[in-house]
Design a protein around this nucleic acid. Sequence first.
DNA 1: GGGGTAACCGTCCAACTTGTACGGTGCAGA
DNA 2: TCTGCACCGTACAAGTTGGACGGTTACCCC
Lengths: 199, 199
Amino acid sequence: MSTTRLVVASYIALGVTARRGPTTSYDLKRYVAESIGYFWQIPHAQLYAEPQRLEDLGLLRSRSEEGGRRRRFFEITDAGREAFEAWLADPSTDAPELRDTGLLKLHFGALGTPDDVRALGEHQREVREERLQRFLEFEAQYDGRPGQEHQLLTLRLGQAYERMFAAFWQQVADSAEDLAEGRVGSIELRFLADEGERG
Amino acid sequence: MSTTRLVVASYIALGVTARRGPTTSYDLKRYVAESIGYFWQIPHAQLYAEPQRLEDLGLLRSRSEEGGRRRRFFEITDAGREAFEAWLADPSTDAPELRDTGLLKLHFGALGTPDDVRALGEHQREVREERLQRFLEFEAQYDGRPGQEHQLLTLRLGQAYERMFAAFWQQVADSAEDLAEGRVGSIELRFLADEGERG
DNA sequence: GGGGTAACCGTCCAACTTGTACGGTGCAGA
DNA sequence: TCTGCACCGTACAAGTTGGACGGTTACCCC
């Protein structure tokens, strides 16, 4: 943490602070848990270390409460806002990662039994449907205040995403036997068939 | 690395070794780079440390070449195979993660300009289409040898996945202005419309 | 055959990250 | 008043990371 390079957690801290005004690390932690955390966990220790570092770099400033909980509020500086906006304006990103142990188990499926694969498919479908359900509920909570449209869009993507995975895993479960017998061709992957015609 | 708990990298080492027979850490590194690595990077240092640890746990055994490169080959033991198969047979998994800086930038899109969002959308669409292209080429390389069906299925999912993201980002680019003016409702997310009717 | 270079193979380690344990404050309800 | 829970933050041991380094073999071109 002694380097001057900004990492993703830095921009989360800057972005949340820019949006919310005075923000404690605890606020940051909750913000992440309730939004970004659903697809990208940040260990909370980092959300305490990072704002400190950003203050040293002049991108945030802080003031602490005198009494009581002595909470420490961070605010974004002009330099911080500039750094954040430069990041936003740069469309390039690191290679996206997808850490899905279920897919890894499927990858190695041939080393197990068809029953393993079917059970995996069914369980993963359930998990994905629960997540979908949660995401649908989140959308209902949106209150239409301006400034949330972009989040809403990521939420919609999340919904589509979970739907796609649920459909995928359902097919995996349905075709576990076929797969084991080498008939991968018979799996149509219907869930993406309509997509193929998009032009 | 002194604990006895197995992590994902452990199962990758066990699985690849089970499938390939005698395997060096370097082989492991290449295997990961050419398959799993496209959605889940494992630092190579871990692929050297992990087999050593697994040998200490009795799940792998090794023998080293005498001369030349003194390569160290690992093989799976019965205990190792058992541990791996138990893992495969367990359909539960850790919460999947999706580390996508592009989505994060979109999340904070309201703090930037519509042009930022459009540029982001266009760039991300390109990136996704390149990945899709690569995945389509991979499929052409499959030789139909048995035992690869499960990988092929994950590859197909990867293709659907990239297609979906490409379509999503295209829409983001197309609707950057609408978004900035609060008209998120006008974004149909066509790319998932057909999905919605799935039972 | 010699020289260059690229792929092969592995180790090391300083810097960084992570999870977990801990310790305290303030509020609300029993 | 007491008890529990949400709030708020720190500390640090253990583990992870990426990049530098160093040697070997195969191959190609001259």
